[in-house]
């Protein structure tokens, strides 16, 4: 039963990650290759504040989301007007740097050893009650995030973001502060990533730098593309398909012994890489996607 809980919790957390990335990439067309950095900031902030400084759990989560948002703000302000390709490279560099900071600032982050003893929500109620209650909390927050994104998607704001993605200079010519909106989207998406990171830390109760490699960013891209970029329900489906694959292949490892454990985990990432390529080539609109993105693709060529 614990295992089922964990699979669902991971599915929900990746849903949340995909929702935040969808706001950035799907709605606005911002390519953030350093997404994991904001997840890590959220996770570490909350873990350190609650473990080392004994902050209450909710304050830790809020601080995690806030600090992730705060970190993205100057980055966005400085670099978002450079153009999508440069921004992608810059953010990739940022996530490498964040990882180095976590690894090297041992006094603050406990370095490679990681942080243990992070509390689960409702830990006082004992393991049998705390797991399902914590899961419910994560589910509620994920649902709230989905609702927020849905609201944005169906508001004039969402319409404007799609317009910016379709043609930024046209939006500027109509008096829209496109740079401001892109920074806003970066900040909100980063806050969501930070919250998801905090929830993750408090679910697994132990975090270390190797859990925040660029693979997390890439997994989120997969979840989003699998479900359909720019769609509203897509991230949920994509995230759960991804988690079922990842966790399922771990379970399979116990029964199939063709390859060594090392090879099996490598194979898993090879399949993920291959899936990403095949999806982009054959179904860029996602498994669940309507043919919508194919048209917006054409319009993006014009710009």
């Amino acid at each position: 039963m614990t295992y089922v809980y964990t699979v669902i919790a991971f599915g929900l957390i990746y849903t949340m990650l995909a929702l935040g990335l969808n706001l950035q990439m799907g709605f606005t067309g911002i390519i953030n290759f350093g997404y994991v950095a904001f997840v890590a900031i959220g996770a570490y902030t909350s873990a350190l504040l609650t473990v080392d400084l004994h902050w209450p759990l909710l304050a830790g989560w809020a601080a995690g989301a806030a600090l992730a948002a705060l970190a993205s703000y100057p980055l966005g302000l400085l670099t978002i007007r450079l153009g999508g390709d440069y921004f992608a490279v810059v953010t990739l560099g940022f996530s490498e740097l964040a990882l180095l900071v976590v690894l090297n600032e041992r006094q603050l982050t406990h370095g490679a050893i990681g942080i243990t003893g992070i509390h689960r929500p409702f830990a006082a109620l004992g393991p049998h009650l705390s797991a399902p209650l914590a899961l419910l909390t994560i589910a509620a927050l994920t649902a709230f995030t989905a609702y927020l994104i849905w609201q944005i998607g169906h508001s004039p704001l969402g319409r404007l973001l799609r317009a910016i993605q379709a043609n930024e200079s046209a939006a500027q010519a109509l008096g829209k502060n496109t740079v401001g909106y892109k920074v806003l989207v970066l900040v909100v998406g980063s806050a969501i990533a930070g919250l998801a990171g905090a929830l993750y830390a408090h679910w697994v109760q132990y975090i270390s730098p190797d859990q925040f490699s660029p693979d997390v960013t890439f997994n989120t891209f997969i979840a989003l593309i699998l479900g359909g970029v720019g769609s509203l329900l897509g991230p949920v489906i994509g995230a759960f398909v991804l988690i079922f694959f990842l966790q399922g292949s771990i379970v399979l490892q116990d029964y199939v012994h063709i390859f060594s454990a090392n090879q099996q985990s490598a194979l898993r990432f090879m399949i993920i890489g291959l899936a990403l390529v095949l999806l982009i080539v054959f179904r860029p609109e996602g498994i669940m996607g309507r043919m919508k993105s194919r048209r917006s693709r054409r319009s993006a060529d014009v710009s």
Binding site: L157, R159, A166, A170, R295, V302
Partner: peptide, 28 residues
Amino acid sequence: HEFGGLSVLDNLLVASSDQIGERFPVGL
């Protein structure tokens, strides 16, 4: 420079100035 994926009407509505619904988070 049309907003290709948006409807013609939405293209015009995007253009309207000073929309409450475009403010964040107030518009929500």
